[in-house]
Design a protein around this nucleic acid. Structure first.
Lengths: 190, 190
DNA sequence: TCTTGCTCTTGACAAAAATCAAGAAATTAC
DNA sequence: GTAATTTCTTGATTTTTGTCAAGAGCAAGA
């Protein structure tokens, strides 16, 4: 079983083998070089990608700063879901932080899955509910935790990321400045 | 066309009439009295409700405070989606802030819709993507805005709510204390 | 009507986090 | 290997937000 097949199974649950093959066949292994853009704010999002290896950052530049919304690591998907599904202009820019390999499906093929695999919409729905829940938890963290608590929580669950990406991006993703992040970090080490 | 039919149409898009009837028939009009609980943290969520009239607050009590995650007004749905779908213990408590009327579907019936209306999973997926997008925007607001900016943004889009519910709940939902909320408010009036 | 609770506001103060500025450390590019 | 960039840290200071405590305003109920 390929890595993609395993992902699909673990994200979308049990799928029979024909369906799995149908799904997998629509994803193509693509590469993206460090610094290149998978998507830019304002454009239509034309694809959905699972990260096979590498790192991608989803962010947006506002008048006065750059805001990192999420960093996708191995096993995560990356896309502007709303733009992909509703064909609206993308809110996010997605850029590769390092050379990365992605399993990518085009919008056209994405729209076809439903007819090839009847169960797809249901599986995908469950997958999106899981993502929805993660976002709910993230909102909760902003309603109930201090910057320091958010730092700890994230650190415990994503240690590896801390020596793979510029820390300022993690700081932004957690809703604090690089300075505050650095000071919290210092406390930890002492 | 009943109000519920209109909701379904506006949330889930165009549905043919048979499907619409099938869906609508599974929702029952229920009432809930001010102060009563639709769901309590730790319990299984056994239903999904659309608010026909009234107000419901989704919150959780932590060691040191009570956190309001969302207030559902007319037209919104209310449930612990994750608990409903995955049958995990509910994270949220949902309580009626005033006597409310709800269109409610039980978990059993909810699970049946897919077989009665094949297109259901796809429609529901689109609906959840819209909710997902709203949560993304909310996270963005915490990454990029001050308490005052969040206040303005929310106020502009939800003026009515400000004289219908205790302001402390809105404060919590926006991630600030009642005191900060009150001070921002004062500034606005002057 | 008069309590009794809530809820909201206000002030004084404390804590948390942001900003600004400078310099160190690490990476990348030549 | 060295210079040039970028990233990270640190200190000083300001701003924002939270905490605590008291009181005002309202509303529901006896």
């Amino acid at each position: 079983m390929t890595e993609l097949e395993q992902y699909i199974k673990s994200y979308f649950g049990v799928v029979d083998n024909d369906d799995l093959q149908n799904i997998v066949s629509l994803f193509k292994l693509t590469t993206i070089k460090k610094g290149d853009f998978l998507l830019k704010t304002g454009n239509r999002c034309e694809k959905l990608s699972f990260v096979q290896s590498g790192l991608l950052r989803m962010f947006v530049i506002t008048e006065d700063k750059e805001v990192t919304q999420w960093i996708s690591t191995k096993g995560y998907f990356t896309t502007d879901l709303s733009s992909l599904v509703f064909e609206t202009p993308s809110r996010w820019t997605i850029q590769a932080l390092v050379d990365s390999n992605l399993y990518t499906i085009t919008k056209d093929d994405y729209k076809k899955i439903g007819s090839l695999v009847p169960k797809w919409h249901e599986l995908e729905k469950l997958f999106i509910v899981r993502c929805f829940t993660i976002l709910e938890d993230r909102i909760f963290s902003h309603l109930s935790m201090t910057a320091e608590e958010r730092y700890h929580f994230f650190f415990e669950n994503n240690r590896e990321l801390f020596n793979q990406v510029p820390l300022q991006f993690i700081a932004s993703m957690l809703g604090m400045t690089p300075e505050t992040f650095s000071r919290i970090r210092k406390k930890q080490i002492l």
